[in-house]
Amino acid sequence: MKKDIIRPLVICVFQKDESILVAEGFDPVKGDHYYRPIGGGIEYGERSADALIREVREEIDADIYNLIYIGTVENIFTLNGELGHEIVQVYDASFTDPFFNDKDEFEGREDNGEAFKL
């Protein structure tokens, strides 16, 4: 997490029945688990929808369609003892492969190779 900047992010809620798809993380400083939808950083010159398609492909090797913009939220938080600040574009979308709709849990990977549970 870079200090003293506001990060532009994009996430997708992937609604299924009464639930949304989230990745599980852990903050060792707080000793708490946290949950957030799949997504990531928007690169300079990249549209948020394109960033979401790229991030989903990178994190869980899945293709998505039917992207629907929901809104924007501002998130100020503490993670690993450091202050973070994000402006987050939020979407809903559908997976092209029904595998992702049928599983209750599966694994994804961050850019650094670290695995996470969904």
Results as ranks from 00 to 15, higher is better:
1 M>Y: 15
4 D>C: 14
4 D>E: 15
6 I>H: 03
7 R>K: 14
7 R>M: 14
9 L>R: 12
10 V>Y: 09
11 I>Y: 12
12 C>R: 03
12 C>E: 09
13 V>T: 13
16 K>N: 07
18 E>M: 11
18 E>P: 00
18 E>T: 08
19 S>R: 07
20 I>L: 06
22 V>T: 12
23 A>G: 14
23 A>T: 11
24 E>P: 05
25 G>S: 10
25 G>T: 01
25 G>C: 04
27 D>H: 04
27 D>V: 03
28 P>Q: 08
28 P>E: 07
28 P>F: 03
30 K>D: 09
34 Y>H: 11
34 Y>T: 06
35 Y>K: 03
37 P>C: 09
37 P>R: 01
38 I>P: 00
41 G>E: 15
43 E>A: 12
44 Y>V: 13
44 Y>S: 15
45 G>Q: 05
47 R>E: 15
49 A>F: 13
50 D>W: 05
51 A>Y: 08
55 E>H: 12
58 E>Q: 14
58 E>F: 12
58 E>W: 11
58 E>Y: 13
59 E>M: 14
60 I>A: 07
61 D>T: 11
62 A>K: 11
62 A>L: 08
63 D>S: 14
66 N>R: 15
66 N>K: 12
66 N>Y: 11
67 L>G: 05
68 I>E: 14
69 Y>W: 12
70 I>L: 15
70 I>W: 10
74 E>S: 14
76 I>F: 08
77 F>G: 04
77 F>K: 06
79 L>M: 08
79 L>K: 10
84 G>T: 00
84 G>F: 04
84 G>L: 08
84 G>Q: 09
86 E>T: 02
88 V>P: 00
88 V>Y: 07
88 V>E: 09
91 Y>V: 00
92 D>N: 08
93 A>M: 03
94 S>C: 12
95 F>G: 00
97 D>R: 00
98 P>G: 01
102 D>G: 06
102 D>P: 00
102 D>Q: 06
103 K>V: 06
104 D>F: 07
104 D>C: 06
107 E>L: 07
108 G>N: 01
109 R>D: 01
110 E>Y: 10
111 D>N: 06
111 D>C: 05
112 N>H: 06
113 G>A: 05
113 G>V: 04
117 K>F: 03
118 L>D: 01
118 L>G: 09
